[in-house]
Design a protein around this nucleic acid. Structure first.
Lengths: 348, 348
DNA sequence: TTGTAGGCGTTATCAC
DNA sequence: GTGATAACGCCTACAA
């Protein structure tokens, strides 16, 4: 299988030089037809270069190109967790958008450790990406984030773009969805349906966007007339929500007619916990979340939530990552409630 | 905010040269202390270089390093779909493993278009990654895949590693899970529980691993004594499975006591379809899948499936992607059935 | 339109 | 131990 074919035992990748030599032209000429912009090369040369490249299986060495050009065709994406359906959906959309304009995506994951973020970004900066997109981290208290800001600003000063998604804690280009308004509208609709005694599950991790959701929900409920709202901050996860719900006293649980969690993930955890303690959803208690992740389609009852147009967010983010229009600095994508079976109208 | 600070309006990234100059040493010396391997540099110099790098915020230019060294610290990962929970879990594990040994991961997605695979790989090759990992594509008929093989072999000849996950259609290093055996064991356990009349939902897309699951399941059922098995090939998706189930006649549906789908995703689609036509799961009919994706935890009833140790697969894959031990060429990670509430013992 | 020369940031080779 | 010097593959002037 590895016999001494015509070019079998080759060791070195095919370079532009090889192509040029094979085509009998100079390196810049080959470069112009294969990778160049203004393609004014004689058709005969052009032809020869093309077929030589084809023959040899030439692929441009991207690192070399990046170095020579001073800029790469890579976008660096920083996520907190890729296995989370919310973030994987986000990543998918961003990759789709990036690919549509010929950009690669390099992904790095913080695993929800805020302190890793800085190291990660420094590493990524070394890749000389065209832009760095930070999605879905972002803490409420901006203490040690000064180092992060410095790092990102340094990156921007060298011509890189920084785009934040769903975190308004740093002074950079930001694409947000309207956490506050989405949660507020949800609360109003739920109030209309008759929900009065609500448990709001926020996040023990002080994330800004989650705080906005809590505030929006409480605001919406308050506007809709007097209600009992109790805000709690369990661990920011499925397990955290579940455990919190399991820890409620029977009295407390009995008085509730709704649990709103700041993410669908947590809402599902709450749902699981409620069921474990014998409560039926939605007959005994309603549940609502936020994000409208796709895996909700398999959950019974269908979960009421707030839908976010992730594709619009991704498109905006990539657009901002690749354009240099200084006029835009922030864009908020709408989020709107979707009432489903987990919160039917309350008859009582 | 952008005042004329000490180094505010800088335009060019900090290079090794800058660090060397600031430290008063030569470029090679700076290189040795910051990135080099054999670190025999005088402590005093070492100190100065380190603090200069710190001061200036130096980060090595990875493309430049890659070019100089002839090899990068990147692994390229090709997936068919990142938003799928199965693949995002896989990606997460691979990234974790890669990161543990200081490697970056660059992800590309075929969006399930087989023909894109070749272009994608050629592009990726240009990034000069240390290895290319292909996960979860792989068709049964290997017709046009010759071009793919050529491309990958060319890449290997230049020192790159190629690792396949869950596809045995190409002559490269492969990490597989035991699709056949996992499905076979599942079938045997279900037969023991009393299931006799089974609908098997394979994949209209001719994927090798899915075919193996079908064959394994049928084999297990056959071994367990005479049963009625009907194999069908709906579209390879949640929607495909759902639609197929909805298309069954009432007679056909009534005769079944089990639906096995080759992926959890499809099993959930079937579950949705069964419910839409008024069947209760598991009272009227059992459902089983394959993969044990994490989102199953929120599905009621809990789904019987075949568990795959993704972390073991990922670890193997990354190991093979970074080692050059020629002796190993294939490894099969076990897969084992997990019986849950969706397939209770049949009393009848 | 085409070729020559120089440079991108880093590492490797080799004298000192 | 340390510092010149020559690569790595490509691109962008510039000159022909």
């Amino acid at each position: 299988m590895n016999g001494p074919g015509e070019s079998a035992q080759q060791r070195r990748p095919v370079t532009l030089d090889d192509v040029a030599r094979a085509a009998g032209v100079s390196q810049p000429t080959a470069s112009r037809v294969l990778n160049g912009s203004s393609r004014r090369v004689a058709p005969s040369y052009r032809e020869r270069v093309l077929s030589a490249a084809q023959e040899l299986g030439y692929t441009p060495n991207l690192p070399a190109q990046a170095m020579a050009r001073g800029t790469s065709r890579t976008i660096a994406l920083v996520l907190s967790l890729i296995s989370d359906p919310y973030f994987s959906a986000m990543a998918a959309e961003i990759m789709k958008q990036a690919e549509a304009i010929g950009l690669h995506v390099s992904i790095a994951v913080t695993e929800r450790q805020a302190e890793r973020e800085l190291d990660l970004i420094r590493e990524l900066r070394g890749q000389q990406p065209r832009a760095i997109i930070l999605a879905g981290t972002g803490y409420v208290d901006p203490p040690s984030s000064q180092a992060l800001i410095d790092e990102l600003q340094r990156y921007e000063q060298t011509g890189g773009r920084v785009v934040l998604i769903s975190r308004s804690d740093l002074p950079f280009e930001t694409v947000d969805f309207d956490n506050h308004e989405g949660a507020r509208q949800l609360a109003r609709e739920l109030a209309t349906l008759g929900y009065r005694n609500c448990l709001v599950l926020g996040s023990a991790t002080p994330l800004l966007s989650m705080q906005q959701r809590v505030e929006g929900f409480v605001a919406g409920l308050t506007e809709s007339g007097g209600t009992n709202v109790r805000v709690q901050q369990p661990g920011f996860s499925w397990a955290g929500a579940r455990e919190f719900v399991l820890g409620l006293s029977d009295d407390e649980a009995a008085q509730l007619d709704l649990v709103f969690a700041v993410t669908d993930d947590m809402a599902l955890g709450a749902l699981a916990g409620l069921r474990e303690r014998g409560l039926r959803v939605p007959e005994d208690i309603g549940v609502a979340g936020f994000d409208d992740i796709s895996t909700l389609r398999d959950v019974v009852p269908k979960l009421t939530t707030v839908h976010v147009a992730l594709n619009a967010v991704a498109q905006e983010a990539v657009y901002r990552a690749t354009t240099t229009d200084e006029s835009l600095t922030r864009r908020t994508v709408p989020a709107y409630p979707v009432i489903r079976a987990s919160t039917p109208p309350l008859s009582s």
